[in-house]
Design a protein around this nucleic acid. Sequence first.
RNA 1: GGUCCCAUCGUCUAACGGUUAGGACAGAUGGUUUUCAAUCAUCUAAUCGGGGUUCGAUUCCCCGUGGGACCGCCA
Length: 423
Amino acid sequence: MKILIKKDLKKNIKKQIIESLKWIGINHDDKEYIQSKNINKHKEIAKELLKKGFAYKCYCSVDEIKEQKEKAKKKGIPFVYNRKWRDAKNLEIPKNVEPVVRFKSKISGNAIIKDLVQGEINISNSIIEDFVILRNDGSPTYQLSAVVDDHSMNITHVIRGDDHKINTFKQKQIYEAMNWKLPEFAHIPLIHSEGGSKLSKRDKASTVDDYIKMGILPDALRNYLLRLGWSHQDKEIFSQEESINLFNLKGIGKSPSKLDMSRILSLNEHYIKHMDEKKLFNFLKIYCVTFRKEIDNSKEKKLFSSMNFLKNKAKTLDNIYNNAQYILNDIIKISPDDLKLLDEFSKKVIKDFTSAFEKISIINKESLEKIVNELINKHKTNFKGIGQPLRIALTGSKFGPGLYDIVLSLDKNVTIKRLKMIE
RNA sequence: GGUCCCAUCGUCUAACGGUUAGGACAGAUGGUUUUCAAUCAUCUAAUCGGGGUUCGAUUCCCCGUGGGACCGCCA
C-alpha cells in the first residue's frame, strides 16, 4: 500500500496517517518509501522520455499560461495547453525562462482503461493535454513520480478515489512510452459529506482523529467504512476477520455515498455493548487520559466493576465517561435545571428513602426494590416520582444508569452522604 | 462550459429480466408497575421522468432531468 502525502503539509502528518491506519487495524508490512528521496530517478526517466521524443521542453511562462486559461474561460471553451513548444523548430528560445518538461500526449484516437470498479472507461485522447512532468525548477510532478515509483515498487493494483480517473489516462501514456507493464486500476467512489460533496479536510469529521476524539471505537469506524459503497447481502456487522475475508472490489458500487453520523454512532453503540469489558475499559482509560481527565487510581476498580451497566447506555466512550462522573468525582454537581426538579415533594421522598436505606443491612436489588415500592405506595406516585429525585441527588443528572445500579455501585456511606446533602 | 461517472425509502444498501421491491440506521407509535438516551413490538417511507426491447423491466437500450468528480509547474 502506498500513501501519498502532499509535500506542503507538515511532516508529522505522515506519522498521524500511519497511526490512524494502525488504529483502525491496518498495519504496513514493508518499509517506508519516501517519494521525494527518489526524485533523481524520476528526473532520469524524464530525460529518457525527452531523448526518446515522448516529451519536450516548454518555455511558456506561468503568466502566459494563465492568460490563455482566462481567455478560454471567458469564451466558455475548455482549456487545453496549446502545445506551442511541441514542435518548436522555428521558435526562438527566450532568455531568462527556465523551461518545464511536458509529456507529448496523444492527439487523436481514443484511450480505454479497464477499471476493476468502473468497468471500461473510454475517452478521447484530445482532452488530455501535454501535462507537465518536470517543473521549471527541475522537480518531478506527481504524474511522473507516481508512475516511476509504482513501477519500481512493482505495484500490482492502484486503488484510489475516482477523482483520479483522468490522471490514470495521463499515467497510462507514461507507462506505454516507457514500455512498462500497466498495473490494475480500481477507482472507488468518494465519500461525500452531509452536504453532498467530496469530503475534505475542512469538514468537521473527516479524519480518523476526529472520530477518536468523539469516542468512536476502531471496530465501529472500520465496520461503517466497510459498508460504504459495499455490502454483503443483508449483513451489517463484520468482525475484522470477516472484513478481510469477505471484502472484494467487485462488490463496490460506482456512486458516492454520504456520511451518516447516526449510523456511525449506532455501530459504535453496538461495539461498546458487545466488546470484551476489559478491552472496552482499556479504550476508555486511553480516551480519558488523552481527551478528558486521567482516571484516578482509587476509582479504577469501582469504574471497571460498573462497566457492565455503564456500557448499556452509551453511544460513545465520551458518553460512558459522562455517565460515570458520579463515580469519578466525590462531589457531584447538579445543574440549575435539575435542581429545580428537587421540589418539596422530592426532598420528602429523598428523606424517606434515606432513613429506610440507613436501616437495611443487606444492600441488593431486592432490598432496594422493597424500599422503593413502599415509597411509591406511600406517596401515591410511580417509579419516576421516586427514581428521578434519587438519581439527581446521587449523580447530578436525570439521565444515566438504572437507579439500582447506581446505588449498588456506590458505598453505603457515600450514598447516605449525598442524599443528606439535599435538604 | 468541456469530459467522465452515477441515479432503489431521509441515509447506507439487497433483489439470475418474474419478490406483496428486502435489510440496517434515522423517524413515528406503543409495551416494559425502573427514569431513558436502554430494551422489545409495531408502523411510516423508495425503483427520477419519458420512450423503446420483452409475455414480463428496479434490472437491458436511447433521450431528458438531477447529482458528483476532474479540468494546477497540488497530490
